[in-house]
Amino acid sequence: MRPFDYQRAERLEHAAQLTGEPDTLALAGGTNLVDLMKLQVETPQTLVDIGRLSLGTIAEDGEGLRIGALATNTATAVHPRVLADYPVLARAILAGATQQLRNKATTGGNLCQRTRCYYFTNIDQPCNKREPGSGCGAIKGIARIHAVLGTSPQCIATYPGDMAVAMAALDASVEIASERRSRTVPVRNFHRLPGDTPEKDNVLEPGEIITAVTLPAPVGGVQLYRKVRERSSYAFALCSVAAVVDLEEGRFTRADLAFGGLAHKPWHDPRIADLLIGSEPSLALFDKAADLLLEGAESYGENDFKIPLARRTLAAVLCEATGVEP
């Protein structure tokens, strides 16, 4: 860990101003950032503690719900409105990390969680995300947990979180504030693909602070979060599916699906809903949905299995949601 300056932001404007400075990072729950600082993966000169800002409220937002950026994962997962109207979100959060970590981790911090790639977290290995231009160790290395969708020759890392996958299925939005402006970005567009700039995980610019995530009006339906992993807790997803699905008269009327563990961002492909809506659920249809999902998928040896695994997990979730017998 490099020595660093610690500042506490008392007001949002102050936080935005401070985090606009070079080599400055915002500290919220610290469950990811502090670990990475210990490993010297993150070496900020200044940490701006935003933990005292009044951003922890979970409140009604029209018919929807506004989750403050500093609301803890635990607070969100047990919130009565979340449990009643957005159960996929509660399930996704509870599928992640451990109770101790969820008690500290925040909404905004979780969105900004960095990849678990072994080469990213080892500063003696090449990694274009950590050190642009140094190369990618994973492509020819241990790529078991890596992406199969939207990769680039520069980076095959995944976004590791669960919460954001559910938020992508729910089509939630991220509220972002800075000194100059406020803006709202759909969760589906918040994270980015690595391309030639894998060092940028998401669209957040220096000096921008996430203030909240807003969930649209509830849509009901069957809401599932399915996370595939080697052990049953405290493990990142090999593949996960968040599903918000509804049927009327035996046909899909809603099929909002998002996928974790497959890409540098929670993966959402609108073509899948287009395919499913209006159709009768069947194994053959689910297979077609998987064809769309995995079109262009590329694997790197060790993670070849993720392609059939994604297909099977999608089928499992849709079978459970629709009652189709495999």
């Binding site: 080892n122 003696d124 290995q125 020819k140 290395g141 241990i142 052990r231 990142f236």
Partner: peptide
């Protein structure tokens, strides 16, 4: 173990999976 330089890739308790 990395196939290129033999370094151990999963060297913490988050990535070396003992049963929970």
């Amino acid at each position: 173990f990395d196939p290129v330089d033999g370094h151990l890739a999963n060297c913490d308790l988050a990535e070396y999976h003992v049963p929970v």
